[in-house]
Each structure stands twice: as structure tokens, then as C-alpha cells.
Design a protein around this nucleic acid. Sequence first.
DNA 1: GTCTATACATAGATAGAC
DNA 2: GTCTATCTATGTATAGAC
Lengths: 208, 208
Amino acid sequence: MNEAGPAGSGRREVIVARAAELLARKGIAGTTVREIGEAVGILSGSIYHHFESKDAIVDVLMSAYLQELQAQYRAVLDEATDVSATFEGLVHASLRTIELHPHATLIYQHEAQYFRETPRYRYVRVAGERVRETWMGVLETAVADGVFRADLPTRHLYLLLRDGLWLSVRWFRPTAGYGYPQLATDCARLYHQAFASQSTLRRMLARP
Amino acid sequence: MNEAGPAGSGRREVIVARAAELLARKGIAGTTVREIGEAVGILSGSIYHHFESKDAIVDVLMSAYLQELQAQYRAVLDEATDVSATFEGLVHASLRTIELHPHATLIYQHEAQYFRETPRYRYVRVAGERVRETWMGVLETAVADGVFRADLPTRHLYLLLRDGLWLSVRWFRPTAGYGYPQLATDCARLYHQAFASQSTLRRMLARP
DNA sequence: GTCTATACATAGATAGAC
DNA sequence: GTCTATCTATGTATAGAC
């Protein structure tokens, strides 16, 4: 029983949650199943009653993360209006996902190479591709509309934003007055100005 | 003999070079001394004739990297003119260092947590502090002079730039017509516009 | 400077008692 | 569902022959 309990209460969920912290801090290769067991309060052998391997834990973690990210992006695209609003929406959606899954975000960022080289994690790479396509679609539309600059490779715009945005999980610590929504607003402002075309800049200066 | 040979020709240098590739791709914990030996063409035991441990190899690698970075930044600061030129100079210096030490850059970025938690690598953290101080000094001067925007935390400006810039090593592949110097010029333009104050933006639009 | 051989510790994973 | 016990593989590191 207890199989249909609320998310986070089952033994499996506790294991995944504790493992997430360790995996984010020490990396996948640097985290042992024994450590995960210790963090949960059971012996390493007992972990294998719930998961068939260390990578199986990572699977649960990353799948939930990538599904959440996809859902967040989908919601933004479904109620898309103009391209600037969509851009801003994606920034907010990304930071919301980071706030919900900080450990998974860090693991995803730091183990990208491992995920790429390991057949088992093909779905991670596929999800990453989809994220890239989503962003590039929005950015290319903005460039085509003359809203964003065309003097730099659009791909560079995406990659510089991506790493700046996602790696904020390494340094940002929300406080009472300044949380992830505020950070998202600030990031959207910063990158919007960074990416703005000359005509957009003129419009921004005309009515701030 | 051969101890005073040109850098890169000695056995030690070859080991460090091959190890750098592996450590960058698989992480420190994910790379074994056996693999390093294989990459060099000797058995793992022989590695210990040259280095007392795996971490000792990382030390040589990171020390050379951080010294190079410091020298590059020093050169920029020594011939500093106005704050915009210094900012641009630091961007170019950073990407020059990435070009010279791509593997060390990746290791530094991905193993930051490990370096922070391991007493042996105190010097890495100290060097990182100095880099931060260098950038923050320039950015805060620019903000004080009204050149850069003051509506976002200056620390955020630095961190978003840092991660975007340094992580370019994960995706940028130089070609004949577009190498690191070109990327540096583009990044400097992008972040300069991102960080520009309203008055700077007005000046930029007046004379492009 | 490298190899052979190996000590020793720790890793992932399994089997069966409770 | 957890523990005890353990197998097996692999890791770091060392000693001594060549």
C-alpha cells in the first residue's frame, strides 16, 4: 500500500529527493548509492528494493524535471500574444522551473556531457533539443520582425541567455523581498535590452 | 634529463594534456587514473612515477590555467583607459584564456563545488574571488559613472555575464572566418548593450 | 621511466533472513 | 521494507623487477 499516496510521501519519492541534493552537489559519478542510503536513513542494499540502479533514480528525477519544464513552456506558448511577451514568458517559465527543481536543474547543467554519451539518457537529449527549438523559434521570429538584433548570430543570443539564465541556480538565493519572480523580471529586462534591435531601442527610450 | 625541455614535450606535460581532455569530458570523479594512463599509452601504475595522485595532476592543470587568466587580466588593467574599454578588454582576455585552456575552463566551471569543498583546492577558490573582484570593480565604476545601468543589482550583471561568457566553451567551435576574437567582439557588444544605462543607450543610438 | 604484480579500499549490485 | 552478508568489479596507490 501507500503506492497512491501524495507525491513526496512515498519511500521512492524520499529517496529521489535526498538523492537529488547529493547528485547536484557531488555529481552523478561522485555520489555513491551508500551515501544516498545514509541520507535516507537506510542501508545501500535497501535502495535496490526501490530502484534497480543509481541511474534509475536519476531517470525519475530528470523525467519529472523535463516534464515540468515542457509543461511550463507549453503554457507560455499556448497563450502567446506578441513575440516580446512570449520571450518574457519563457524567461519566467524557466526560472519558475528552476525554483521548483533546483537540484535537477544543476544536474542537467553539469552532467550534459554524460547524458549525451549514455544511450540510456537519450530522452534527456531529445528534451534539450525541444527546448532549443522553442527558444530559437521565438528568437528567430523576433529577429525577422525587426524586434531583436540581426547583427549577431541568433544562435549566440540563445546560448548566452541559456547559460546565464539556467546557471543562476548556482548563485541565486531568494530572499523575502526578492524571489525568483523578481529575478525573472530583471533577467527579462536585461536580455530584452541586450537583444533589442536599433529600432526597438529607440522605442524603449521614447517610452520607458 | 629532459627536465628543462620546452613546455608540452616532457612526459609530465603530456600526461597533463591528455588528462585535461578526459577530466573536462567526464569530470574528476568520473575519470580514472587507468584511463589517463591509457590515453598516454602507459599503465596506470606508471602515472604515479610522475604524480603522487590524480588531484596532483588537476593541480598542475588548474594552476597553469589560473595563472594565465590572472596574467591576461593584469595586462588589461595595466593599460586601462576608460571603463568601457576596460570592460571590453576583460571580455577579450577571458575568451583568449578560454581559447588557450578550453579543458581547464570546463573543469573549472563544472567542478566549482568540488574545488570549494576540498581543502587542497583553496587556491582555486582564492583565484575565483580575485576574478570576481576584478569584474565587480570595473562594473561598479561603470555604474557609478552612469555608463552602466543601476536599475538591476550589479552583482547580477556580473554573474549573468560570467556564466554566459565562460560556458561558451561548451558550445563554441571556432571556424576559419569566425574565431574567438570575433566571438569576443560580439559578446562585448551584446553585454555592453545589455548593461548600458539610458544615457549610454542614447549615445549609442546617436552615433552607431 | 615503464612494467608486473598486488595490496587495499570502495564501488555497484544481489540473495536471503527477518 | 530493511538488514546482514557478500560477490564481483573497479578504483587508488605501492613495491620491486627490468
